[in-house]
Design a binder for these strands. Structure first.
Lengths: 190, 190
DNA sequence: TCGTTCAATCAACAAGCGTTGAATGAGAGG
DNA sequence: CCTCTCATTCAACGCTTGTTGATTGAACGA
């Protein structure tokens, strides 16, 4: 008979503390980027000692890796038009909720090689999916442009906080971008 | 009679050294971003002592400010179609030559508040120019999206080096983006 | 020519960083 | 109850960083 809110077992305690550290790490990495985030700051935000963070995660790099690992959301393939619409709804999801983990990657991407690799790794299957759906020889370039647009919009909305982009509703942004995505996924009509 | 290649005067010598430091700073800031760039690395790349960099520029922040100050290139106003085309040629210019100064800003933007302000300050007049040319109530959002696209493409080409984007010719990229820019600068036709 | 200026170097500081190893003290297991 | 485990803390290390002040020596002005 395990009482519901009894004293936690050791394994539970460890797991809770790890999660608390990871949550703090995600938030601070997202706010400050990799370089400016210190292990001491993460530890103090999680209410533990810096040594404990090292003891649990091994190094700052490994902590970053654990903090930002996230299941890449699936992007179903299909015709070019379907992929365009799927990309738009995926963008809409990322414009509605604000996942600290992917913001941490996005902010650290330009200065941390590991974050850049992680970004590429997360982007690659999506890029391939898009590429296959576009029936033109320059499909890979078109897919890369789509990716650049998505991440440019997210970066300027959440990280740079350009006012007009930060205030707009996701639907408004998506509606404005729909013709762009359609023209990039569709071969020249003539 | 000032011989052409005589021993340089003191003022000349100082100016040359300052320029050498600034060039090194631009390159290293562009490669590594603000945080990872050290004054010692800049000094050594310029072939001088780190103390001299401080003596000339006062602080790392001021050095960064001097290194990335750049005359904002003019963007002539006009009809919405003209602005779209002007934006495209401006993008083409930035995809052809590779100005280290603006890459330094771009790379440091997400982690250095000064770089972010600088980016905003450089983008604002262009944004206004674009906004005025678009005859819709959501003109400012459209302008912000155009800016996000431009910088997203540049970032993924030069900083992240996504292969398909890095290899493509500027003309190819511009041709693919033209419909996007036209749809964003033009009110819904129906 | 003499004193001043100033470009340039050198050595050092204080602070902050990631990281380590020993110490503590409370749970787990027999 | 005794022992082992392990979550957690603490103090310290070696290093790098931005920044400073003294110092040198050559160009400059009178």
């Amino acid at each position: 008979m395990t009482e519901p809110s009894a004293r936690p077992t050791r394994a539970q305690q460890r797991h809770r503390t790890e999660e608390r550290i990871l949550a703090a790490a995600r938030q601070i990495f997202a706010e400050l980027g990799y370089d400016r985030t210190t292990i001491r700051a993460v530890a103090s935000a999680a209410g533990v000692d810096a040594g404990l963070v090292m003891h649990y995660f091994g190094s700052k790099d490994l902590l970053f890796a654990r903090a930002v690992e996230v299941p890449a959301d699936e992007l179903p393939g299909g015709t070019s038009g379907e992929v365009a619409e799927a990309l738009l709804t995926s963008l809409g999801r990322r414009l509605t909720s604000e996942p600290a983990a992917s913001l941490a990657v996005l902010r650290s991407m330009l200065t941390n090689a590991d974050a850049a690799d992680r970004y590429r790794a997360a982007a690659e299957p999506q890029l391939n999916q898009i590429t296959e759906a576009i029936p033109t020889p320059d499909a890979d370039l078109r897919a890369s442009l789509l990716s650049a647009i998505v991440h440019g919009v997210i970066a300027e909305r959440y990280l740079l906080r350009l006012t007009h982009l930060a205030d707009a509703s996701p639907e408004q942004i998506i509606d404005l971008l729909r013709p762009c995505f359609q023209s990039l996924t569709t071969p020249p009509s003539k």
